[in-house]
Design a protein around this nucleic acid. Structure first.
Length: 456
RNA sequence: GUGGUUGUAGCUCAGCUGGUUAGAGCGCCGGAUUGUGGUUCCGGAGGUCGCCGGUUCGAACCCGGUCUUCCACCCCA
């Protein structure tokens, strides 16, 4: 070992069992995406920096992986920024490309660029990795997969209803219970800011509010005060810190507060619309919860905001999120294109399923039967059978080397291959096979037709 | 980006206030068992103690740096 190899911080290798489990999740998500009528697209792993920079806020810019220009990039570098060691300033002059940070902005770019070939409303899904230069933690990686479904070109609130149904469908398919789909509306948050006369501080206000379940009422108030929101203002919206009850009861609670805010009332109307529809078409396993403190989201959400939390007993951040953005494509020059979408965090869902032991046993098992290799003549006989089994869609393989049987059996055992097939002189003579069940240890001599029957 | 934390065999971990040749379990390889795996028994291989430097007669152990892990903040899937 000359040098211990390693992979970059926050990235991972996946072994066959892990890939199988990941694919299991991918399959379920993809199946539901298709069932709901979404169509797949893919975009490059890296984009022009201009496409990404400035779309996720200051924090986001910092977390975008920049790609160094090729060639003698220092020659073209901003020399003034180089002299003063100003990293922020020098970056655009030495890096023109950046790794995809999420799937929504590239999608917006895609829509604008291909607007003339797209039939609106356009429902697309996209399952690809994204990269963030974040400091890794549990459930937080520098390379991870997002599974997004979005609709652009429709303002209909039925889409919000559909996405909630889609969340429910996926988590039902994954047999993941007690998932909570939290919903809020940006207009309600705007209403709050308006009512307390701090409209220009809406970002600070919502960020502080979002931390309610983490730092508590006291903490939130403290943070709001330090952000310059007046004590009086805070008093006026204090009731929202203690909203109790079901969806309808919470709505009633904020109606009072937002009585004088047009935008706030609009938000309430939208929430009520969604709630009523879901009441008529009940969810299978997930629950829909109103959370007026939910402020997640990139600054482009304008209407509904979604966040999906894992079951309470699992310590994991959100496993999905989404919302409506009325003007996402506007930044790329296409006005009036409302979009709404959701995202599934594949890697986090994986950790949750793993922790709750929800992966089906069969996911990792592949090869059904292994033929023991007794030598060239026998191997040829075996390989012929392997070929015929494959034609029957049965996964079979021949052990490549003519080694000791113990070794070959051991291999089958470790790989958890359920059947081993032995074919030596006497089987070849009879044109049969000895089929051994590795679990029970039983074995019997059968012809090919019976072999197929046992292995299908 | 800020603060903390972790790193010893393939894996999980021992290793005393610094003191000769760094241990265990599991796994791996070989044999008992040349057409029968899982169990048992016997034997064996495998470690620049994350990396670089410093202190010391002497460093896995102390100090500094760096990388990595996990955690909190920030933010998020």
């Amino acid at each position: 070992m000359a040098q211990k190899p390693s992979i970059p911080k926050g990235t991972r290798d996946f072994n066959p069992a892990e890939v199988a489990k990941r694919n299991y999740i991918f399959d379920k998500i993809r199946t539901e995406f298709k069932k709901f009528g979404f169509q797949p697209i893919e975009t490059p792993s890296f984009e022009n920096s201009d496409t990404l920079m400035g779309k996720y806020g200051e924090e986001g810019d910092r977390l975008i992986f920049k790609i160094l220009n090729s060639g003698d990039f220092l020659k073209k570098a901003n020399s003034q920024a180089y002299e003063t060691k100003d990293s922020l300033k020098i970056t655009p002059s030495i890096s023109e490309k950046a790794l995809r940070y999420d799937l929504t902005v590239p999608f917006a770019r895609y829509v604008v660029q291909h607007q003339n070939e797209i039939d609106f409303p356009f429902k697309r899904y996209q399952i690809q990795p994204v990269w963030r230069a974040d400091r890794p933690q549990k459930g937080r990686f520098r390379e991870f997969f997002q599974c997004d479904a979005d609709v652009v070109g429709s303002k209909s609130k039925w889409q919000e209803v559909e996405f909630i149904q889609l969340y429910d469908a996926v988590f039902s398919a994954l047999k993941l219970k007690e998932v909570s789909i939290k919903i809020n509306n940006r207009k309600v948050l705007s209403g709050f800011a308006e009512v307390i006369g701090e409209k220009d501080k809406i970002i600070d206000f919502t960020i502080a509010l979002d931390k309610l379940d983490k730092i508590g009422e006291e903490g939130v108030i403290q943070e709001m005060l330090t952000k310059g929101i007046s004590e009086n203002a805070i008093k006026r919206i204090q009731p929202i810190f203690n909203l109790k009850g079901n969806f309808t009861e919470k709505i009633a609670g904020i109606k009072e507060i937002l009585r004088d805010s047009e935008i706030g009332k609009e938000g309430i109307k939208e929430l009520e619309f969604v709630e009523r529809a879901i009441a008529e078409i009940p969810l299978k396993t997930a629950t829909l919860d109103l959370d007026v403190t939910l402020a997640r989201g990139l600054n482009y959400y304008t209407g509904a905001i979604f966040e999906v939390s894992a079951p309470k007993n699992v310590k994991m951040g959100s496993i999905g999120g989404g919302g409506r953005y009325d003007d996402l494509t506007g930044i790329f020059g296409l006005k009036d294109m409302s979009g709404v979408g959701i995202s599934f965090g594949l890697d986090r869902i994986y950790l949750v399923l793993e922790e709750l032991n929800l992966f089906p046993e069969a996911v990792t098992h592949n090869t059904k039967a292994l033929f023991i290799n007794f030598g060239d003549q026998e191997a040829l006989y075996a390989l012929k059978a392997v070929n015929r089994l494959r034609a029957e869609n049965i996964i079979a393989e021949l052990f490549p080397d003519d080694t000791k049987m113990k070794k070959q059996m051991n291999y089958a055992n470790k790989r958890e291959i359920p059947f081993v097939i032995l074919a030596g002189d006497k089987e070849i003579q009879a044109e049969e096979f000895t089929l051994k069940n590795m679990k029970s240890g039983e074995q019997q001599q059968v012809d090919f037709a019976e072999l197929v029957k046992f292995l299908s």
